[in-house]
């Protein structure tokens, strides 16, 4: 149940494109069986069903297997630096609020090198959607533990097992004050399409964690199939305590919309700031005349 739909998505001249029309000419280089394929095809379907014109859609990313996402989408693409997708996406959105901006990446990009930016994008409530494809491992660099890897993971870079407690991305996003928080699974495409749509329709910062297993370095398909299930029907996505309770569950991993609320977005806040500044009746000519009179 969505109560706030980003008005910008609704006011487009609606595109009538099939999911395949959002495919770029580049075929994904991911390993056969990578969960990211499921996320990508769900994404094509979601934007198609939302009728988003390609010339309104920006996909930005950092670095990693999932960071290659923009190359495979027929839209504006910004493949940036490792961990820095949120600043890039914030700059794009703030300079042109009419655009639908999606940030995509993996758990290393989001929760390790780029973690410093996440609380601030949340705090600002930048009106973008962040899809984090979480495989609990570094795939591109060939299998090192990530911030979401379980304790005791033995890999080449952790030959004696990791000792760090994995972080809980949902709990973190909730604690920081994210206005939309959800979780999906690449093997549940029907549900994932809905989650992507809801996340993108949310006005404000939407944080979507998607379990997207790495077949090559950490095959968790069977594990996630066993431990995931939809959020219980009695969960109210307006209830942050309930969202936090389910986010803390580590035996069963729940899928669905955990939480949503409305708060002014960063560009709305900036517009208010601008109105205040304009009250002083200043424009560029006034500033310059003051400067150079």
């Amino acid at each position: 149940m969505i109560s706030t739909i980003d008005p910008r998505i609704m006011t487009f001249e609606q595109a009538n494109l099939a999911p395949n029309d959002y495919k770029s000419e580049v075929h994904p280089i991911w390993c056969p069986g990578c969960g990211d394929f499921g996320v990508l095809s769900s994404f094509y379907k979601a934007v198609s069903e939302m009728h988003i014109p390609t010339e309104r859609l920006v996909v930005a990313s950092g670095i990693g297997c999932s960071g290659r996402f923009p190359a495979f989408v027929h839209a504006y693409g910004f493949h940036g630096t490792h961990g820095r997708v949120l600043p890039l996406a914030t700059g794009i959105k703030m300079a042109n609020p009419e655009l639908v901006v999606v940030a995509a990446g993996g758990d290393g990009d989001a929760f390790s090198i780029g973690m410093g930016h996440l609380p601030h994008a949340i705090r600002r409530n930048v009106d973008i959607t962040y899809i984090v494809m979480d495989n609990e491992i570094y795939g591109l660099t060939k299998g090192q533990a990530s911030p979401t890897s379980p304790v005791g993971m033995e890999r080449k870079a952790s030959p004696y097992g990791t000792v760090e407690t994995p972080l809980n991305p949902l709990l973190l996003a909730l604690a920081r004050g994210a206005t939309w928080v959800g979780r999906g699974f690449s093997s549940k495409p029907k549900e994932l399409v809905e989650l992507i749509k809801q996340a993108m329709q949310h006005k404000g910062f939407s944080f979507l964690q998607v379990y997207s297993p790495c077949v090559t370095f950490y095959d968790t398909y069977d594990h996630f199939k066993q431990v995931t299930q939809p959020l219980p029907a009695d969960h109210n996505s307006r209830d942050k305590m309930s969202a936090m309770k389910y986010a803390m569950s580590d035996e069963t991993l729940y899928l669905g919309v955990y939480y949503q609320e409305e708060r002014p977005t960063f560009d709305e806040g900036y517009a208010a700031k601008r109105a205040k500044a304009h009250a002083e009746n200043y424009g560029v000519p006034q500033i310059l005349s003051r400067f150079t009179r």
Partner: peptide, 27 residues
């Protein structure tokens, strides 16, 4: 803010230049 422009205090330098890059690519 007195113009149609945007000014942001970033959370750090990496974010600040990142925002500039994103904005610059929108023109």
């Amino acid at each position: 803010p007195k113009t149609s422009g945007v000014g942001i205090q970033g959370e750090d330098e990496i974010a600040s230049i990142g925002m500039c890059l994103g904005a610059a690519m929108t023109g």
